[in-house]
Amino acid sequence: MESKRQRQVAEMIKRNFSLVLQQEGSYIYGPEPLVTVTEVHPTPDLSQAKIYLSIWNTDNKQAVLLQMEEEHQRLKSSLAYRLKRHIRRIPAISFYIDETLDEMHRVDNLFDRLYREDQMPNEE
């Protein structure tokens, strides 16, 4: 169960890191991939934050994530600059790929295929 402060910090990190990606992202992973922040999960002591990213418009999502890891310090510095008036200590950040939307599309396509093959009853 997240505390109110954890939810506040998570939302603050999510909004500000999204802005950092808008400004710095094209220099790090190029103009083609579209990277969005889907979720942020800070630890109860707010010392660490897991940032979940949705990566679109590229076939190699892992390469984008690796490029972000290489520029980890640059991204954290930009985030710290935006958060310094709001948080006493900037949490250590780590990046993860959020596969939720990909999984949703996969399941949706599976249902479409089952309907086409008449293996599912029609909703009438």
Rank of each mutant, 00 (worst) to 15 (best):
residue 2 E to M: 06
residue 4 K to P: 12
residue 7 R to H: 05
residue 8 Q to H: 15
residue 11 E to L: 13
residue 11 E to W: 13
residue 13 I to Y: 13
residue 13 I to H: 13
residue 15 R to M: 11
residue 16 N to F: 10
residue 17 F to A: 13
residue 18 S to D: 11
residue 18 S to R: 13
residue 19 L to H: 15
residue 20 V to A: 15
residue 24 E to V: 05
residue 29 Y to W: 15
residue 30 G to T: 11
residue 31 P to E: 13
residue 32 E to Q: 05
residue 34 L to N: 03
residue 34 L to T: 07
residue 34 L to K: 03
residue 38 T to N: 11
residue 38 T to Q: 09
residue 39 E to Y: 07
residue 41 H to R: 09
residue 42 P to N: 00
residue 44 P to H: 00
residue 44 P to Y: 01
residue 44 P to D: 05
residue 45 D to F: 11
residue 47 S to E: 06
residue 50 K to E: 01
residue 51 I to A: 10
residue 51 I to T: 04
residue 52 Y to N: 02
residue 55 I to Q: 05
residue 61 K to T: 04
residue 62 Q to S: 11
residue 63 A to M: 02
residue 66 L to K: 14
residue 69 E to F: 15
residue 69 E to A: 07
residue 71 E to M: 05
residue 72 H to I: 09
residue 73 Q to C: 14
residue 74 R to L: 10
residue 75 L to D: 11
residue 75 L to P: 15
residue 80 A to C: 10
residue 81 Y to H: 12
residue 82 R to D: 10
residue 85 R to C: 02
residue 85 R to E: 08
residue 86 H to R: 00
residue 88 R to I: 02
residue 89 R to F: 10
residue 89 R to Y: 11
residue 90 I to E: 06
residue 90 I to W: 08
residue 94 S to F: 08
residue 96 Y to V: 00
residue 96 Y to A: 02
residue 97 I to W: 09
residue 98 D to I: 00
residue 98 D to F: 00
residue 100 T to K: 00
residue 101 L to C: 00
residue 103 E to N: 05
residue 103 E to D: 05
residue 104 M to T: 04
residue 104 M to S: 09
residue 107 V to M: 12
residue 111 F to A: 02
residue 111 F to R: 04
residue 112 D to P: 11
residue 113 R to E: 02
residue 115 Y to R: 03
residue 116 R to H: 11
residue 119 Q to P: 08
residue 122 N to A: 01
residue 122 N to P: 08
residue 123 E to H: 02
